[in-house]
Design a protein around this nucleic acid. Structure first.
Length: 565
RNA sequence: GUGCCCAUGGCUCAACUGGAUAGAGCACUCGGCUACGGACCGAGGGAUUGGGGGUUCAAGUCCUCUUGGGCACGCCA
């Protein structure tokens, strides 16, 4: 049977006051110090209502409320009313629930029937997939799983950067210096090389820029020759990206990038004109956002070509029609914050009341201690190299592994990739990150490998445990650390909801670190396999639950578990 | 010049809509498997949350001033 202890506490209070259960439930907190209790009602806000001191209110309520089967004690402390739940009944409820629901434990249905669009990754065609794209990719993947976990349908969109004057430049560069053989061999590296060369040469010869603009105009006009080249570049790039997505365990529901909207732009321009929002300025067309304290939003460039804001507007309108989204999320770096504010505002001015459902989930850009990185100069850190380095380092740690020879590589791959993903998701996404190998590839406590290791230890015991009783007696789980584990696991649903509300996978990462630490502490102080029955059965059940929750958390972060390492 | 963001032990980071003694990891000092994997665990020292003022029963969190850093500001995305 399922039991919501927060509700039980709320109803106890509600019976003795004039507040309804929901109101009380919203006021309840979980004390930071678990010694204090499992739930607490801060009475400070009630002070002005009752015209009494919080201390008095807590004291009087404590006298009125009788403990019952679920709640073992009610104590007033410094204006807080603390509730202690009945540990045995609580443990039984939670562990049975995890055992019944398995992977679905912690899920919710608040999002049922609603669709959330998550735009992420969005690499540029013919440009390297670097660390910055990784942030967007892994955050997007995690958010998608988080939203699904609370009932939403999600649509993962990879808004490819496959349109724009850069392709004119690339075509120009190809015509001057392109080498088909080299491009087929290492597409992105070679395309980047000639793209960089183009920029160098264009410094000396401005005519090249003119030429590039012409090529893009032709491309936009549908000229067969340019289109063929563009398609070729795109196919080659996507093939390379697919390898990375495969390694990361990431997939998308749509690859509609900027080019997909190229024919939907005139409609956007018409709509803007209808509303008299367009204004000519310096031979270009803009939407003036002066009265909203923002710089103008450019819609059509002076050469008549489209620009990204226009494509984003077209994309948003298309998505609303196609999916009728509840939320339209953009996982894009913070430097583009202004762009999103501008184009959301333009959507609103166009009369789309749903513009409020568009959300920019920003992340701080990744900095590097020494090197200046730039695509234009070809100075970048490739994601592939980071992944390889991580996997190799993990392999070194696996010297004493008991795994079969043929399992070593796939296992190191999972742990190594997981280490990188975890390093990016364990910190607050809005805070600037300085990329260092040491931090990203860390295998110590607050790391992906630590969580993997914890899980593998648990699974190992489960594998070895035999001769168990039919029904665990949870009343035997009396160690402090055992209670702490159960308490921690019981909060999973709240943690997931918080992560969703904040669009912040870090919340899950911190949670699973804490749970893993508790498990390791338990592992060190409580024996299991050689323990007498029925305590053994109870502890095995506890480990089973813990492994289920850890696996779930790693899944929500986009990381695959391994059973042994 | 205008706007947005950040500042928490030596280092890297937590702290849910303001709530109880500001928590972790790394590093440092001590200690722990005749039990299941030591990529582990336990203990300890170390912070007047950049600085000043204010609001509040209560401020790392809100307001204001100030210092230092980052980012963005029409024809790249």
């Amino acid at each position: 049977m399922e039991m919501d202890y927060k509700k039980v506490v709320a109803s106890l209070i509600s019976e003795k006051t004039e507040f309804d259960i929901d109101k009380i439930e919203g006021m309840l907190e979980v004390p930071s110090n678990t010694e204090m209790g499992d739930y607490a009602l801060p009475c400070f806000k009630l002070a002005s209502i009752y015209k009494k001191s919080p201390v008095m209110i807590a004291k009087e309520l404590a006298e009125k409320i009788q403990p019952n089967d679920e709640i073992s004690s009610v104590t007033p402390v410094n204006g807080y009313l603390n509730f202690m739940v009945n540990k045995v009944s609580f443990a039984t409820t939670i562990l049975d629930e995890i055992s019944e629901k398995g992977d679905l434990f912690g899920d919710d249905s608040v999002g049922e029937g609603k669709t959330v669009i998550i735009e992420s990754s969005s690499p540029n065609i013919a440009k390297p997939f670097h660390i910055g794209h990784l942030c967007s990719t892994v955050i997007g993947q995690s958010l998608s799983r988080l939203y699904q976990s609370v009932g939403y349908k999600t649509v993962k969109v990879n808004h490819l950067g496959d349109w724009g004057t850069q392709f004119g430049k690339l075509i120009s560069a190809y015509k001057h210096w392109g080498d088909d053989e080299a491009i087929e061999k290492e597409p992105i590296k070679e395309l980047l090389r000639i793209y960089v060369k183009f920029h160098e040469e264009a410094e000396k010869d401005p005519e090249l820029d003119e030429e590039a603009r012409r090529y893009f105009k032709n491309l936009e006009g549908g000229s067969p020759e340019e289109t063929k080249l563009w398609q070729w570049f795109k196919d080659l790039s996507l093939k390379e990206f697919a390898l990375l997505y495969n390694r990361l365990g990431v997939s998308f529901d749509s690859y509609h990038g900027e080019s997909f909207y190229s024919d939907k732009m005139p409609e956007v321009v018409d709509l803007l004109e209808e509303r008299s929002l367009l204004k000519e300025s310096e031979h270009a067309y803009i939407v003036d956002l002066d009265e909203y304290n923002m710089p103008p939003c450019m819609i059509v460039k002076s050469d008549g070509a489209s620009i990204y804001a226009t494509r984003d507007i077209a994309a948003a309108i298309y998505r609303k029609k196609e999916y009728d989204f509840y939320k339209n999320i953009y996982v894009v770096g913070i430097p583009q914050a202004l762009h999103f504010q501008q184009f959301f505002k333009v959507l609103e001015l166009m009369g789309n009341e749903w513009s409020k459902d568009c959300v920019h989930v920003g992340f701080a850009h990744v900095r590097f201690p020494d090197k200046k990185l730039s695509t234009r100069t070809g100075n970048v850190i490739y994601l592939e190299d980071v992944l390889d380095e991580s996997v190799n380092r993990i392999k070194e740690y696996m010297q004493n592994t008991k795994l079969e020879e043929d399992m070593i590589d796939p296992t190191a791959e999972k742990i190594g990739i997981g280490a990188v993903i975890f390093a990016f998701l364990k910190r607050s996404r809005e805070k600037e990150m300085v990329f260092t190998w040491e931090d990203t590839l860390n295998v110590e406590v607050e790391s992906g490998p630590y969580i993997h290791y914890t899980y593998a230890r648990g699974v190992n015991i489960l594998r070895k445990a035999e001769g168990l009783a039919d029904h665990p007696d949870y009343s035997l789980l009396t160690e402090k650390v055992e209670t702490a584990m159960i308490n921690k696991m019981s909060t999973l649903n709240d943690v997931i909801k918080e992560a969703v509300n904040r669009n912040e996978p870090m919340v899950i990462a911190r949670y699973v670190i804490e749970l893993s630490k508790l498990f390791n502490s338990f592992y060190n102080s409580c024996k299991v396999i050689n323990e007498e029955q029925p305590l053994k059965t109870a502890r095995v059940a506890l480990i089973q639950a813990c492994c289920t929750v850890i696996k779930k958390c790693l899944y929500l972060l986009g990381i695959e578990t391994v059973d042994a390492m």
